[in-house]
């Protein structure tokens, strides 16, 4: 799409994999890299972006734009610590799922805004009661999964839906514990037919950040979670360009040394990202 922001759908087929945490921190990192970011909570049933950012009292949301009840600009609030713009969810009131025409209207509004990125946090699965054609409005879908069999299978199922509709997608593996019993990145890369753009470890900073209503990346930029999200964010930054869009990002000095000396196989995630960028 030539006009408007690069619209990213943060999605998963299962709940509890950390979509909102990834969406909030992805938007935070991109905003701190001086990209103009709009974070949208499109989970009509259980909006939670507001809890992550201390905006839980803003009882207006994306649904109000679709229903043409409000001026779209009046729904957008500024997250003061980062300067990013946020359309939080409507916590109260009856849950009303939008029609196709309402969704088309929402995306029309999004396209008109002058942002580099629109990060849209969604409910698990595909929106019920409407056909999947609305997904064509996104530029890319990020599938969030955890390294266990049921979640990975669901991610593959969701990827198949996206493939059917021709929607570009990528995978972020969240809550990695580096344990023997969990599915390794290599296994995921072999089974998932797309680029794995992030491997984010399980980190105590995440529940703390939700309790404090501050994105984890702002609480500690050097913890494992923040570094994982930061690496993934810079890969998405490469989609729109800019000086932070570094394809070398994600490789530690030690990794680069081993790679130069030929003692280490190149990082598969990095290799897939670079290959994609070269194409």
């Amino acid at each position: 799409m030539a006009k408007g922001p690069y619209i990213v759908r943060i999605s998963s087929q299962k709940g509890g994999v950390g979509k909102t945490t990834i969406a909030v921190n992805l938007a935070t990192v991109l905003s701190m890299l001086d990209y103009k970011v709009l974070l949208v909570d499109a989970d009509y049933a259980n909006p939670s972006v507001g809890f992550h950012l201390g905006l839980e009292n803003v009882n207006r949301g994306f649904a109000d734009i679709g229903a043409k009840r409000v001026d779209p600009k009046s729904v957008i609030v500024t997250h003061a610590p980062t300067g990013m713009h946020v359309i939080p969810g409507r916590v109260g009131g009856k849950v009303v799922y939008p029609s196709i025409s309402q969704i088309e209207w929402q995306f029309k509004i999004l396209r008109e805004e002058n942002y580099d990125f629109a990060i849209v946090d969604t409910a698990p699965g595909i929106l019920p009661f409407v056909e999947n054609v609305y997904l064509k409005n996104y530029d890319e879908a990020v599938i969030v999964t955890t390294p266990e069999m049921a979640s990975c299978t669901s991610a593959i199922r969701l990827a198949h839906v996206y493939d059917t509709l021709g929607l570009k997608h990528s995978l972020v593996v969240n809550r990695m514990r580096n344990k023997r019993y969990e599915i390794s990145i290599q296994e995921i890369e072999e089974s998932y037919e797309g680029s794995v753009t992030g491997a984010v470890p399980e980190d105590e900073i995440v529940p703390l950040s939700i309790a404090e209503h501050i994105p984890a990346y702002l609480l500690n930029q050097r913890c494992g979670f923040s570094e994982g999200v930061s690496r993934a964010s810079k890969r998405y930054a490469a989609r729109v360009g800019g000086r932070y869009a570094s394809k070398r990002e994600g490789m530690s000095l030690w990794d680069r040394l081993l790679t130069v000396l030929g003692l280490r196989k190149r990082n598969r995630v990095l290799a897939s990202v670079e290959k994609e960028e070269e194409e």
Binding site: P147, M149, R180, S184
Partner: peptide
């Protein structure tokens, strides 16, 4: 012993499901 390890069986299962 406890670190994440590649398992061809698990990878094969995932590919079959795909």
């Amino acid at each position: 012993a406890i670190r994440q390890r590649y398992s061809p069986d698990r990878a094969g299962t995932l590919i079959r499901m795909r």
